[in-house]
Design a binder for these strands. Sequence first.
DNA 1: TCCTTCTGCGTATGTCGTACGCTGTAATGC
DNA 2: GCATTACAGCGTACGACATACGCAGAAGGA
Lengths: 253, 253
Amino acid sequence: MAAKTDDSDPAIPPAIESAWGLRERPPKGPRPGLTVSGIVDAAVRVADADGLAAVSMSRVAKELGAATMALYRYVGSKDELLMLMVDAGYGPPPGPAAPDADWRTSLTRWAWAEHDVLRQRPWLLHVPITGPPITPQQLGWLEDGLRCLDGTTLAEGERMSALLLITGYVRNDATLTTQITEGSRAAGIEPGELMPAYARMVGRLIDPARFPSLSRVLASGVLNQDDDPDEEFTFGLDRILDGIEALIRRRAV
Amino acid sequence: MAAKTDDSDPAIPPAIESAWGLRERPPKGPRPGLTVSGIVDAAVRVADADGLAAVSMSRVAKELGAATMALYRYVGSKDELLMLMVDAGYGPPPGPAAPDADWRTSLTRWAWAEHDVLRQRPWLLHVPITGPPITPQQLGWLEDGLRCLDGTTLAEGERMSALLLITGYVRNDATLTTQITEGSRAAGIEPGELMPAYARMVGRLIDPARFPSLSRVLASGVLNQDDDPDEEFTFGLDRILDGIEALIRRRAV
DNA sequence: TCCTTCTGCGTATGTCGTACGCTGTAATGC
DNA sequence: GCATTACAGCGTACGACATACGCAGAAGGA
């Protein structure tokens, strides 16, 4: 029998071990000049400043005054670095809500917390997700979300589904909102002008006979007025929470 | 005054003009040996066979027996090609539902249609979205969705929000489902083994005292049993439709 | 016929991720 | 105190990739 930890299960990827602080420094060899968290912080700094596209291994290394290849002593690949960046970028979860708050209030707070993080760091949305959450902060967010539903009648599986539903919505909303910001900057027009310009372009392209309902939306002008994005967000969130509430009531019977 | 079309509005990108068939062949010069749609079809073929990552300009050109740079006579950039690939990949919208169907039945059908497309072509999810829909098929899907809500009490803006909500959900669900398929193939294990392996890894990493709710979910075993993905999908979709239904009823008062 | 205008595409450039292997360093075993 | 050894930093090199540029030849109009 090996004296190491149970190897019958799938091995934990090195990046994950780093993230959970399970990596011990080997007893021999030169002292490391860098740290994983230092590299991740530098990468996050680059992404915050210039977007995810600017995060290259050489750029991160430059940020640290190190050579490109030095980073590979700490992260196995760029994908690993990205995963650690997401963990650091999200940061610690919002923490438990007030103890007397009901599930709906708590979940609303939870959703807004993720909403705020994604507004702050839009590049998080551009990191391709490759699997279920496994890093410390990610699981922390999940834990906090589950706690919001602790007193409800939902089954465990339903709680997970409900949280997945909400996270998905938050990310989706943030993606769309971000696109308007980034798209207008790319097109060189003010953010408030993008949707009207879009509406005009669609109007020029489509034939009202083939697209009657869409034409009606265009004619109504709802696309031109830029409503508060936060109201948009609240609208969708309330729809989803209404749906979950209906389920909770049904389970309570 | 210029004799051309109204230029006071933002110019329509060349790729969009191609997609809408507004591109006329110039009267002079050699006959084009390729077509935009031929290039797009080839690119879709590559993506279907080997995934979006395999779609490089040279690979698509090879598929057509042409040189890499020949493609740039037809598409302005790879991003344009991607946009056209999405349009072609989605294909025509499902068409109007039965005339006597209520909005909920119609929207369910609409959501399932997108669901099916994304199951068939998971690479569609990996194409970074850069703006609101503008290509013919995309707007066709939107039109069909709007028609589902034609008889309801919702305002135009609310209809758009509701559709956005549903599309977002469908894409999100497909993303998660696809990750399990692609992730298990990458890890070299059967798809049915991925979630149990994930659950075991999480169980080894977390401290039950710090993650009580999450531990409870793990202990319940819901992650181990692989339930029907279609049931998962139906669950979330019904939650969202419940939420929309609640709004429709409130508006009807 | 000649000129314009377009197509196909060869060449070249710059950016990336990263495999490999050399050099020097720090702690251990003797 | 010294040899051993495992590891840190990183220079070099390679293969992909998107794409700018410009030339050769074809097709149609004058």
